[in-house]
Nucleic acid binder design. Structure first.
Length: 624
DNA sequence: GGCTGCGAGACTCG
DNA sequence: TCACGAGTCTCGCAGCC
């Protein structure tokens, strides 16, 4: 491959006019991964024959950027990159906002072709291109001199490898029939991911601080009471009495190793359950000491009435958890413009779901009734705007119906019946008619109230666990009934829903004999060897994975709505598995909600209706 | 004695 | 080997200088 290193405007122009740039792989080197702080150092191109590295940390930078803007706007018709959503963020940041939407992300392609492999560019270069492992340099290994030959080489190799991977992956995807998923769902979705990161979500720092000001005193007060109960005192450093870091407790109530001996010896609490490693030791016939008792929130709640000490430890831990895992990291994650930007990772979960990190905004704590704290209230709409949420109603169960084509499930969703009640009715012979189980019908709320317990068992004991592949033992533990009864009910459940039973059987056969399954939108999941765990994962994938790709299609449609109505100033700001959070000018709220609902509901055509619930508010908690 | 890396366990969410 | 999919924090231990 011919390599050129470019450091000024004329070299760049010569290279660009001498080479065909209709189809190129490109890669950007930047100073930071966060959109707010990021600046570009250089960019590399490869068209399959020749490659160049363009140093942009130079005097003629502005002229070169404006020439690059022209290239992207007029020359490039196909754009290839590794983790292209990031490289498109860089383009946006440096003012290149108009470019082709015909894109190819080699990272996404690699993930679709093998969801278990590492998808870093360097890993793939070693695995597929035969690049020797010791020749692959990581960012942290290269010199800090951005104008050195070594740095230029590092930059240019990325676009060359990227081109070569594209040439390998393109035919592989056609062979594996992943083409539709890749080009029609995943590639348009990369623009949604780009926009989510660029937009971020606005954080109300006053509300965030208010939560910390509420929970931190609770943590300290509870710790004092706990210490007093065991006849000890906190050790305070002189001076900064308000500063938590200078205060040391002789007992760490967050440590089970320290807390369990107190519970056993001083309070005579009986702990029965063991941790996973404790259970393993029992199976292996090894001795099990106090260290192997399990003490988590569920067990602590069970001991509330008999032991005040346990209740206070739980309260202490909840307060500490909110500060350590929500308010503190959230403060650190806010960019200079007051917005929080998470990374949405498209190529991690083997089901195809998105994951979120740095910070993870997909596990925001719900309302904590003990401490009276709602974390979602810190996410707000900017002035003049409102937040709207579109949420797929019963998404996984509807997709379960679609996947299994079970007649009872299909009827339930066609008639808009409450599926948890339907299951309860079938399992516990409640004698309800179809009409009584239709959501919103007269007397429906009373029925739900009357059969609250049975409905809860239908929902959390069967409907959801069956999608996870739960066994009678799991169901027995879950519902606190004996295994024999759980087995009888599970058999009854599968007899009442024969489509589910048959689908699980077929799915298991495929894993046994073929080693992989494919969900309704084309994504594949592979298994190294058949096992009960693999069978559960495979069936769950058919539903969870389909849900993930339905959401992608929904978001792609919503993006088109955004582009069609610039006056609404609508922005996607978050997504969480089955919902999309957007901000929009207050005066367009009604139209926007209608359009988003339609866009999400029409994303995929199924044999049953998909319903999207819309809500709005000034804060995320209000809009939920 | 202090630092670092790692696994286990606990917690959060859909 | 008792539910699917994630991320992140703390604790406590092992290994190293």
């Amino acid at each position: 491959m011919d390599k050129t290193f470019i450091t000024n405007e004329y070299q760049l122009q010569d290279w660009a006019f001498d080479n065909d740039l209709t189809k190129v792989a490109y890669d950007c080197e930047t100073t930071s991964l966060d959109y707010c702080d990021m600046d570009i150092l250089g960019m590399s191109f490869c068209n399959g024959k020749r490659a160049c590295y363009i140093d942009l940390d130079v005097e003629e930078r502005e002229k070169m950027l404006s020439f690059l803007e022209w290239i992207f706007r007029t020359k490039i018709q196909k754009l290839i990159a590794h983790n292209i959503q990031f490289d498109m963020q860089v383009l946006h940041k440096i003012g290149i906002r108009e470019h082709t939407e015909d894109i190819f992300c080699t990272q996404v392609a690699a993930h679709l072709l093998d969801e278990l492999q590492p998808t870093g560019l360097k890993d793939l270069a070693v695995k597929y291109l035969g690049v020797p492992y010791d020749k692959v340099k990581k960012w942290k290994d290269i010199t800090k001199d951005h104008h050195s030959q070594e740095f230029y080489d590092y930059g240019i190799n990325d676009s060359i490898w990227c081109w070569q991977l594209m040439e390998l992956f393109y035919p592989s995807m056609q062979r594996e029939k992943l083409h539709y998923l890749f080009f029609k769902i995943e590639m348009p979705f990369q623009f949604c991911l780009r926009d989510l990161h660029i937009n971020g979500v606005e954080v109300d720092t006053v509300a965030l601080q208010a939560i910390e000001d509420k929970v931190f005193p609770i943590q300290i007060e509870t710790e004092d009471i706990l210490l007093e109960m065991i006849g000890k005192q906190p050790q305070l450093q002189k001076g900064f009495w308000k500063d938590c870091d200078t205060r040391e407790s002789p007992v760490n109530f967050n440590s089970n190793k320290q807390v369990i001996p107190i519970l056993l010896n001083k309070y005579g609490v009986k702990l029965n359950e063991l941790t996973d490693s404790g259970n393993k030791r029992v199976r292996e016939g090894l001795p099990v000491g106090d260290d192997y008792y399990k003490l988590d929130g569920v067990i602590m709640r069970g001991l509330y009435n008999s032991c005040e000490f346990v209740r206070l430890i739980h309260k202490y831990r909840m307060a500490k958890d909110l500060k350590d895992k929500f308010t503190k990291p959230m403060k650190e994650a806010i960019s200079s413009d007051g917005r929080c930007r998470t990374s949405f990772n498209d190529c991690i979960a083997s089901t195809g779901r998105l994951s979120s990190s740095g910070p993870n905004l997909q596990n925001l704590r719900k309302m904590n009734k003990v401490l009276d704290v709602e974390c979602r209230e810190v996410f707000v709409a900017p002035k003049g705007k409102v937040l709207i949420v579109g949420d797929y109603s019963g998404q996984e169960l509807r997709l379960l119906a679609e996947e299994t084509q079970d007649p009872t499930l299909l009827t339930a969703f066609h008639k808009e019946m409450d599926l948890h009640l339907v299951t309860a009715n079938l399992l516990f012979d409640l004698g309800l008619t179809d009409g009584q189980m239709i959501k919103g019908s007269s007397g429906f709320d009373e029925i739900v109230e009357q059969y609250k317990d049975e409905r809860h068992k239908g929902k959390n004991g069967f409907n959801f666990p069956v999608v996870y592949g739960s066994t009678e033992i799991g169901i027995a533990r879950n519902l606190n009934i004996d295994v024999k009864e759980a087995k009888r009910l599970l058999e009854k459940f599968l007899d009442e829903y024969p489509g589910i039973k048959e689908s699980i059987r077929q799915c298991t056969e495929l894993v046994k004999h073929r080693g992989w399954v494919r969900h309704m939108f084309g994504r594949k999941r592979r298994f190294e060897k058949p096992s009960n765990k693999a069978f559960r994962q495979a069936f769950n994938f058919l539903v969870q994975g389909a849900a993930a790709d339905q959401l992608r299609k929904g978001m792609n449609n919503v993006r088109q709505v955004i582009l069609a109505h610039p006056a609404w100033e609508m922005k996607m700001v978050l997504t969480c598995h089955d919902e999309i959070l957007l901000e929009v000018k207050t005066k367009y709220k009604k139209q926007a909600m209608k359009a988003v609902k339609e866009a999400m509901e029409s994303a995929v055509k199924l044999s049953i209706p998909m319903i999207v619930d819309m809500s709005s508010g000034k804060t995320y908690s209000e809009a939920k």
